[in-house]
């Protein structure tokens, strides 16, 4: 496995730049388009790490489906009112926000301070995955054998979400 540093830096710089655009763009639809690019860059980095399945799913689920839904909702609700112009916030809020941002950054720096030396310690190396028949096969075998219970429980959770959404949508105005 050799990660090309040039490709990695291109994808990460683009991901950071587009993430900034998601926050900075005044128009929510433009923000959503930038978000698609962020997901795309992430998928590129996953692909560089030989995690092709995760890369494909990242694009299929996040860029292809969820963000389309976002844009659909933004357009349907006509959310043209800029959500960031809520007036000038209190000075204390600004200070707290700054402290929180620095704290998150510090936590990340602390968490990744030795990451250059850490090697992947799992059971699966890139070569072993290749001999077992590729990412997709290995992951699906694991999902349907060792991790069958959490996997099925997740689907029950999703079902509960769907039932909840239907219940809310079907509620009559008098019951509200």
């Amino acid at each position: 496995m050799d990660i090309s540093p040039i490709a990695f830096y291109i994808f990460s710089v683009m991901a950071i730049a587009f993430s900034a655009l998601v926050v900075l763009k005044k128009n929510p639809v433009a923000s959503a388009f930038s978000l698609v690019m962020v997901f795309f860059c992430f998928a590129g980095i996953y692909a560089l790490l030989d995690a092709h399945l995760v890369a494909a799913l990242q694009i299929l689920v996040y860029a292809g489906a969820i963000t389309v839904l976002f844009i659909f909702v933004i357009m349907l609700l006509n959310a043209d009112v800029p959500s960031f112009d809520i007036g000038r916030s209190h000075i204390l809020v600004k200070i707290l926000a700054g402290v929180a941002a620095v704290a998150v950054l510090a936590a990340f720096v602390w968490a990744f301070k030795n990451s250059a030396q850490i090697q992947p310690t799992g059971t699966f190396s890139a070569e072993k995955i290749q001999t077992l028949g590729g990412n997709t096969r290995v992951l699906s075998t694991l999902l349907f054998s060792e991790y069958i219970l959490p996997f099925e429980l997740t689907s029950v959770l999703l079902l509960a979400g769907i039932v909840g959404a239907v219940a809310i949508a079907k509620r009559k105005p008098s019951q509200q």
């Binding site: 494909a56 799913l57 694009i59 299929l60 860029a63 389309v68 590729g134």
Partner: peptide, 17 residues
Amino acid sequence: LDVGLLYVLSIGSLGVY
């Protein structure tokens, strides 16, 4: 590609943008 079919589906879903 290792994920051939999923790749086609995922890139195909981007056309709507």
